[in-house]
Amino acid sequence: RQGFVPAAYVKKLDSGTGKELVLALYDYQEKSPREVTMKKGDILTLLNSTNKDWWKVEVN
């Protein structure tokens, strides 16, 4: 499932696989259909980080 999360809630990881991955630093509950819920410690695939406030991710 793809959607947006606050950029301040995730940290980029060095995956070494060519995929950009991020680590969820905090729990986040989606507040609109365009967002996704994540739990602290989740590893997500980063799809787009051009917006400084909201990053598009895919929940694996």
Results as ranks from 00 to 15, higher is better:
Arg1His: 07
Gln2Asp: 05
Gly3Asp: 00
Gly3Ala: 04
Phe4Ile: 06
Phe4Tyr: 14
Val5Thr: 01
Val5Leu: 03
Val5Ala: 03
Val5Lys: 00
Ala7Gln: 05
Ala8Glu: 11
Ala8Phe: 08
Ala8Gln: 12
Tyr9His: 08
Tyr9Asp: 04
Tyr9Trp: 07
Val10Ser: 01
Lys11Pro: 02
Lys11Val: 15
Lys11Gly: 06
Lys12Trp: 08
Lys12Ile: 11
Ser15Thr: 15
Ser15Cys: 15
Ser15Gly: 13
Gly16His: 15
Gly16Phe: 12
Thr17Gln: 13
Thr17Met: 14
Glu20Gly: 09
Leu21Lys: 10
Leu21Cys: 10
Leu21His: 09
Val22Gln: 00
Val22Tyr: 10
Leu23Ala: 05
Leu23Lys: 08
Tyr26Ala: 12
Tyr26Val: 11
Tyr26Asn: 10
Asp27Val: 02
Tyr28Leu: 01
Gln29Trp: 11
Glu30Gln: 13
Glu30Thr: 09
Glu30Phe: 07
Glu30His: 09
Ser32Phe: 06
Ser32Gln: 07
Ser32Lys: 07
Ser32Val: 04
Ser32Tyr: 06
Ser32Leu: 08
Pro33Glu: 12
Arg34Ile: 11
Glu35Arg: 05
Glu35Thr: 08
Val36Ile: 15
Thr37Ser: 15
Thr37Val: 03
Thr37His: 05
Thr37Asn: 07
Thr37Arg: 07
Met38Asp: 00
Met38Asn: 00
Met38Arg: 00
Lys39Ser: 09
Lys39Trp: 10
Lys40Ile: 06
Lys40Met: 08
Lys40Glu: 07
Gly41Ala: 03
Asp42Trp: 10
Asp42Met: 11
Ile43Glu: 03
Ile43Pro: 01
Leu44Gly: 05
Leu44Gln: 00
Leu44Val: 05
Leu44His: 03
Thr45Arg: 13
Thr45Cys: 09
Leu46Arg: 01
Leu46Gly: 01
Leu46Tyr: 02
Leu46Lys: 01
Leu47Met: 07
Asn48Asp: 15
Ser49Cys: 12
Ser49Glu: 13
Ser49Met: 09
Thr50Lys: 11
Thr50Arg: 10
Thr50Phe: 10
Thr50Asn: 14
Thr50Leu: 10
Asn51Phe: 08
Asn51Cys: 10
Lys52Ser: 12
Trp54Phe: 07
Trp54Asp: 01
Trp55Gly: 00
Lys56Asn: 06
Val57Lys: 00
Val57Asp: 01
Glu58Asn: 04
Val59Ser: 12
Val59Glu: 09
Asn60Ala: 13
Asn60Ile: 15
Asn60Asp: 12
Asn60Val: 12
Asn60Gln: 13
